[in-house]
Simulated assay, not measured.
Amino acid sequence: MKKFLVLAGLLLHTLMALPQQRTSIDPGGVWPDQHGNHIQAHGGGIIKIGKRYYWYGEQRRQGLDRALRYVSCYESTDLTNWKFLGDALQQQDPENLGPNWVLERPKVFYNKKTKNYVMYFHLDDSKYKFARVGVAVSKKPEGPFKYVKSFRPLDKESRDIGQFIDDDGTPYLVFESRPTKGFYIAGLSADYMDVVKEVSFIQSPLEGGAIVHYKGLYYAIGSALTGWKPNPNKFATATTLAGPWSEFKDIAPVATNTYSSQSTMLIKVEGTKNTTVIYMGDQWKPGTQWDSRYLWMPVEIGDGKLWLPEPKPWQLNIKTGEWKAL
């Protein structure tokens, strides 16, 4: 009996130590992975392969080797509970960029023909003069990714990047170009390793570009060029990616500065009963980057309008595509 009680006590202790399955998303809150650690996937992007979602982002946990840059990878089937798969990329300075070199906003595409996972990221020196995209490749979603090259897409300076995969699977790179005061939507080559054509140039000085296609319209959002400091994000619409694009309008009350967040992606969840579009934003904390938070919230969208409601905890039914605020 004594041995049974000891074993039962150990089992209970183990179960209590395991993180509970999450049933809701809390915008701006600590978001633990399966180990109870706050998710480190900042400036990130998400792809869906089968029924699994993969979230890639800047790894900012404490204690990292300052000479390296890291991209993390998380996996989920419900967009609420995330499993840390490890650092998909651990990269030394690839282009002799010097101290405090920059690797930001990683985005991954899966090429069905080559069966390669292709990662793009903003690659720069500490003064943001290099202004290129870096490319790395892996055969597995969790990596390890191997650095291949860097280049300037369309021969333009490239800083903040985003990604868009259209409903037919066509991939696009979105990148901000400071000299031209706008951002580009560019088509990728067949192997996804290069940019081959300009699809659209949206002449508005915005970064953090994100795009979604919803009921016959394309919606593009972005934030003003204020660095770490949040600002009022804006959106525009077009019937085709090539444009013409409408004037930009606010997506949230101006005074909130997009609820202290910056756009990084729009996620479309198509279910059996509804389609939900989720605003995916970062709440940056420059001084304590490991504690930066994520603001995910379904948007009110349709008929050329897009609005980010006041963030509050919410639940998503991944099968039906329905959500509800708590």
Rank of each mutant, 00 (worst) to 15 (best):
E247N: 11
Y294V: 01
S126I: 07
G169N: 09
D160N: 11
D194M: 05
L326V: 13
T276G: 04
P313C: 04
K319D: 11
K268N: 06
I211N: 02
L103C: 07
P153T: 10
R69N: 00
L217M: 13
D33S: 07
L206V: 09
N100P: 02
W296P: 00
G29Q: 09
H38Y: 03
E142W: 07
L89I: 03
L11K: 07
K197E: 14
E247I: 12
W284H: 02
S76P: 05
P153D: 05
H42Y: 09
D124Y: 10
S223C: 15
K312Y: 02
K51V: 04
Y56W: 08
I49Q: 13
Y70E: 01
R61C: 00
E95D: 09
T226W: 13
M297A: 05
S24K: 12
N100K: 11
P311K: 12
L15D: 03
S24R: 12
V254Y: 10
R52S: 15
R293F: 00
V71T: 10
R60A: 09
P144Q: 03
K305P: 00
E270Y: 09
D166C: 02
E157V: 14
A252M: 07
P32S: 01
G302P: 05
V118T: 09
E75T: 09
Q92A: 12
H35S: 14
P232T: 06
R52H: 14
H35L: 10
S263W: 02
A41N: 03
A220L: 13
G271M: 01
P32C: 05
I211F: 08
S200H: 04
D291R: 15
A186V: 06
K324M: 08
D26Q: 14
Y219V: 10
T240N: 13
L217T: 06
K146S: 11
L68K: 14
K113W: 04
D125F: 01
E247M: 13
Y54W: 05
T114K: 00
R159Y: 13
D167H: 04
R152S: 15
